[in-house]
Amino acid sequence: MKSKNNPSLVVERYTITDRIAHTVHAVAMLVLIITGLKIYTGWDFMSFHSARGLHMIAVPFLLAVNWILIPYNIFSEGHGIFGKISHFTDHYIFGPKDATRLGGIIKNFFRKGRYPAYSIYDEEKGHYETKLHPLMKILIVLEGTAIFLIAVSGIVLYKLDWSLFGLPIASWILSAGDIIAPIFGMGSLQFLRALHLLLTYWFVFELVVHVGILEFDPHVWKYYKAIFWSGKEDLSDTHYSEFVEKYSRFDAKEHKH
């Protein structure tokens, strides 16, 4: 391993657009959770109209980040269509290697073995092989799905006859709800409201898991700094990270021979 002061070990973990996306997402999500719960519970720390106003202001930010900026960030990496797809799957989709890592993490919790590295940088390729905690990869897909569903249910709560370019979107959503809602003994609107509330709680749960379980560890704080500010990771700090040196694979092959 190279020395701690070697600047070549400092790499860009998050681009500026990654950091903007995460920060805007975090702020918008917090605003939405707080104002949403205010609307639901009737907390009296602000007026209904202020809460609703803030809620509706935060919505386009959250959706723009999730449906425009994050896809842009994901697919601006990698070369060619297949390169972009493999970048997406390697970085964001929970795969067999992640399952192995998660198994190692669980064993480590019960004092067996080392905490496996999940942030792996390949010097030869010049980019990360993977960088998210395996649990985060599960959460990120669930989060994307939850955002889609809460947006869909939110459209109906916002306006029962909302349409876009003449397309009766809210009416379609209510009709889809008509198919599912009877399973739960509810009407469509009732089901969509309950779903909206359930997903709100999901985000609270996710926040606790994300901030608490994944990040409530002094050795992870370097990632806080990276995601909110610097965007850099110093790979000489080997907590949870691994640096695959340029010729290490070649050396390993040579060594075998």
């Binding site: 709680y201 609270v204 749960f205 606790v208 898991v209 901030v211 608490g212 379980i213 409530f216 560890d217």
Partner: peptide
């Protein structure tokens, strides 16, 4: 319950 359990798990993990 789920959020509470996650908070407890986060504490234990930390």
């Amino acid at each position: 319950v789920a959020v509470g359990a996650a908070a407890v798990a986060a504490g234990v993990h930390a």
